[in-house]
Design a protein around this nucleic acid. Sequence first.
DNA 1: GGCCAGGGCATCT
DNA 2: AGATGCCATGGC
Length: 305
Amino acid sequence: MKWIDHKTLIELCPPAELNFAECLQFLNRSDQEVLHQISDNYLYKLIKVNDKRILIKIGSTADSIRVEFPLIAPTTNEREEVAAYVWEWFNLNEDLKTFYLMARQDYVLKNIVDNYYGLRMICIPDLFEALTWAIIGQQINLTFAYKLKKRFVEQYGESLSFEGETFWLFPSYEKIAMIDVEDLRKLQFTARKAEYMIGVAKAMTAGELSKEMLLQIQDYEPMKKKLMAIRGIGAWSADYVLMKCLQHPLAFPIADVGLHNALKVQLGLERKPGIEEIEGLAKNWEGWQAYATFYLWRSLYDKAI
DNA sequence: GGCCAGGGCATCT
DNA sequence: AGATGCCATGGC
């Protein structure tokens, strides 16, 4: 991580392949989002560092990302934690040069990759949030999924108000470990999904599951296996978490319907491609499956806008 | 208003 | 192992 501590603000020095505006556009894709807010090209988010709620305001210059603290001045140690958080959130450790080299020559990706140059994988650093959002995302439609997430966060998360806006933290697993399936049923979660979410929360509270534990495994297949051992986490959810939280470049939710729709559009097909067909196309993406998927997902939002 | 949609699991054969 | 039912809202 390359960064400069200016005390009242911090400055991240990201790799060249970053387009902050492109990332903001992605973050702005749902108007139901409660975990961050965007206004005037600034991104606001409440995060928790050492049990302290810190509101951060993120903007950009030509070659850096600047993080300000509208409410309270964090300590030296906290500033470093904030820097690390933002660095991870925007996946700034990844060097995208070889991805672009591959994508520009790829039959599928060449038509879209330049449209989103500098878009980074926008991550979900908190494992509980990533697992929970994967479970919610199994919902039949995305509109309803966002609705459920909003209710969940506003019911069980901590918040903080600033200039008339309310900023939310994702609920902690300790808190969710103590609630009942019935509590989530009231928010219109299905009994199944409520069980999955509370189960994950309990496992994490008991110390049976953690991000560190998963990251230690390193290799893609065993990590995925470990995730799939969790009730409610199937192949799709495991790959989703590997991609968005554990930042594994090989994560590839091949059965994802969004991916299928994006490929259908890119290839000009009458119907969605089959798994074998996708496997064929993806041979060329080896090592960059997660980014290929992410950029294809991104291509779907253009139609909606 | 009827039908279909996304994923995962439970319950069959 | 592979097929089938279940969930339960939103968009067409």
